[in-house]
């Protein structure tokens, strides 16, 4: 047992400094494609055509990106004509109504309890959510806790395209939560169904089933993006900007 104490004590602090400081470690995010200016209109159309999920749209000389459709396949980073790539992770967006925005202040700014519901997501996004409770991200220091029961939950974190056997379970979980309550849709399949939509068995979007307040896009969104979503919900962070600060190259 003493050995474990030594092991624990000599491991040093691993936890990220985010949100107090930006996380600059390598490999914490896959990055995302951002708006790119091409030499001519044809090249913009060409570039948009490389995307298998239609995440890129040509607009005259420019291409714009809908990150909630991007599955990080990296096809648009290969070849001569590539998208600009940005290594950031502040990806969450507020999509809820104003009542939810007003209610989130006051007592909920310091601490939230979260119930996770998996409605058909892959295990990678579950794994990224698990990372939040692990040493490198340790969301407990920010007042975020996972709770096993919806009755204690302030936030419902939903992943997956809402398969039909999970729809009722999702509705019941949501109904069991006390007011005020918020919903975060984590991952592109929870936002739009992504590669699993349109489908005979999945709704394709959490917002069709219950009201959603925050979107965290990504496939899967890295832990820092999910953390950004939680901080955005509590009003401690600002929304995703079309282009954030420093631009990195494609990986």
């Amino acid at each position: 047992m003493f050995g474990w104490f030594v092991k624990g004590a000599t491991s040093r602090v691993k936890t990220t400094r985010y949100p107090a400081r930006d996380e600059t470690a390598l490999g914490v995010t896959p990055g995302r494609p951002v708006e790119t200016t091409c030499d001519n209109e044809l090249l913009a159309v060409d570039l948009a055509a490389t995307c298998p999920t239609d995440a890129i749209k040509p607009a005259s000389f420019k291409t714009t990106v809908d990150i909630s459709r991007c599955v990080h396949c990296m096809a648009c980073t290969r070849g001569e004509n590539t998208m600009r790539w940005q290594m950031d992770y502040r990806w969450a967006r507020w999509v809820g109504n104003d009542a939810g925005r007003a209610a989130r202040h006051r007592p909920f700014q310091k601490s939230l309890h979260i119930r996770v519901v998996d409605t058909g997501s892959c295990d990678a996004v579950i794994s990224e959510i698990k990372q939040l409770a692990k040493p490198y991200y340790n969301m407990h220091r920010l007042g975020f806790f996972i709770t096993p029961t919806p009755r204690h939950a302030d936030v419902l974190m939903v992943t997956g395209p809402v398969t039909s056997p999970m729809r009722l379970a999702l509705l019941k979980t949501y109904a069991a939560m006390p007011e005020p309550k918020w919903v975060i849709a984590v991952g592109n399949c929870a936002i739009s169904g992504c590669v699993f939509a349109p489908s005979f068995i999945a709704n394709g979007s959490v917002a069709d089933v219950i009201p959603v307040d925050v979107h965290v896009p990504g496939c899967p969104p890295p832990p820092l993006a999910i953390l950004h979503g939680l901080l955005l919900l509590t009003g401690r962070e600002t929304e995703m900007q079309p282009i954030d600060q420093p631009l990195g190259g494609p990986p």
Binding site: H72, K134, P222, P251
Partner: peptide
């Protein structure tokens, strides 16, 4: 066993970051 669990967690996140850094995606897509 929270200490060994945390020790494995550290290795897991390091493996994820290694994938992210060297392969561009934490779960090696694409």
């Amino acid at each position: 066993m929270s200490v060994p669990s945390a020790q494995m967690d550290i290795l897991e996140e390091q493996a994820l970051r290694l994938s992210g850094q060297c392969a561009g995606h934490r779960y090696l897509y694409g």
